[in-house]
């Protein structure tokens, strides 16, 4: 079983629409498992019309609570909290759950035993069935933390299912950026497909994602979306790929059919004659032998 994560560094490069189209093509010959690791903004499910099979609460660490009966307002916790999560107002000690990191420093330090650490349900994760294969996805409650942990949860469960069910390919829709969620989505994958766009920020961000995949020793491949928006930047991406010895596998033109099919919630490859579908099919032909 091969695990391929699709990353973009910058958001909005068309990563999810491209994955949906690749999955559509891949499902013709392979047994697929899909994981949406972009838990802040999980969009893959919107395109795949999943039928929910399982739903689980996600406990994203703990949060401090103060027992007002035991608290003697000594404010030691206010002083030691490094995250500014505890304050004294309206004659009582209050914890701001959005700032609390669950470190429990206050719990251990409180001389009155007035701090309790309680589980924090910060989202849910799902196992769903789609016409292309099982989809693992999650919803982080807005403002909640621990998205890297939730990414790990989604990916590990998907991986286990893929291994146990004898699937050939695990496709992971990665989150934007290069921080914790992106790292959690990337590590353990056999390859990373990076979707770049030919803009000055697209080139900049591609450089940072490439540094990240190199850091974690995951072989990277690049494709450019909306390639005809700026030919010169496209060439810059090609040069960056040559310099770093990273294969550039394909270019997808800007195609209004991408948005048109997205609005109708179907993959662009369902319009096989559209320029974008043709380009993604060519990309899949390049990608496929590398997944053998």
């Amino acid at each position: 079983m091969k695990e391929c994560v699709v990353l973009s560094g910058k958001g909005g490069t068309g990563k999810t629409t491209i994955i949906a189209a690749l999955a559509h093509l891949a499902a013709e010959t392979r047994r697929l498992v899909l994981a949406d690791a972009d838990v802040d903004a999980s969009n893959l499910e919107l395109l795949l019309a999943p039928e929910e099979q399982e739903r689980h609460d996600f406990v994203g660490g703990q949060v401090a609570e103060i027992d007002a009966d035991l608290c003697r307002n000594c404010e030691l916790c206010v002083t030691i909290c490094r995250f500014g999560a505890i304050s004294y107002r309206d004659d009582r000690i209050t914890v701001d759950p959005l700032r609390c990191e669950g470190c429990a420093a206050c719990f251990y330090a409180c001389p009155s035993g007035a701090v309790e650490m309680v589980d924090r349900v910060s989202g849910q994760w799902f196992r769903s069935e789609t016409s292309l294969g099982p989809l693992f996805h999650a919803r982080l409650s807005p403002g909640q933390e621990n998205s890297g942990k939730l990414v790990t949860q989604v990916k590990m469960t998907a991986k286990l299912t893929a291994a146990q069910s004898g699937a050939d390919l695990l496709l992971v829709d990665g989150p934007p950026g290069i921080g914790c969620p992106a790292i959690a989505a990337t590590t353990g994958a056999q390859m990373a497909l990076l979707v770049a766009e030919p803009t000055v920020s697209g080139v900049h961000d591609l450089g940072r994602v490439l540094a990240t995949t190199r850091h974690f020793r995951v072989p990277a491949f690049v494709c450019v979306n909306k390639a005809d928006i700026n030919r010169a930047k496209c060439e810059e991406i090609a040069q960056l790929c040559r310099d770093q010895d990273v294969p550039l596998l394909g270019e997808i033109p800007f195609d209004p059919m991408m948005v048109e099919t997205l609005v109708q919630l179907r993959p662009v490859t369902s319009e096989p004659e559209s320029p974008a579908a043709k380009a993604i099919t060519a990309l899949w032909r390049e990608l496929e032998p590398r997944l053998a």
């Binding site: 933390e145 890297g148 942990k149 790990t152 921080g179 969620p181 959690a184 590590t187 353990g188």
Partner: peptide
């Protein structure tokens, strides 16, 4: 035999 950080997660991640 697995790369670093495979299952890490913190506050917002690690």
């Amino acid at each position: 035999n697995v790369a670093s950080h495979s299952g890490m997660s913190r506050r917002g991640g690690f």
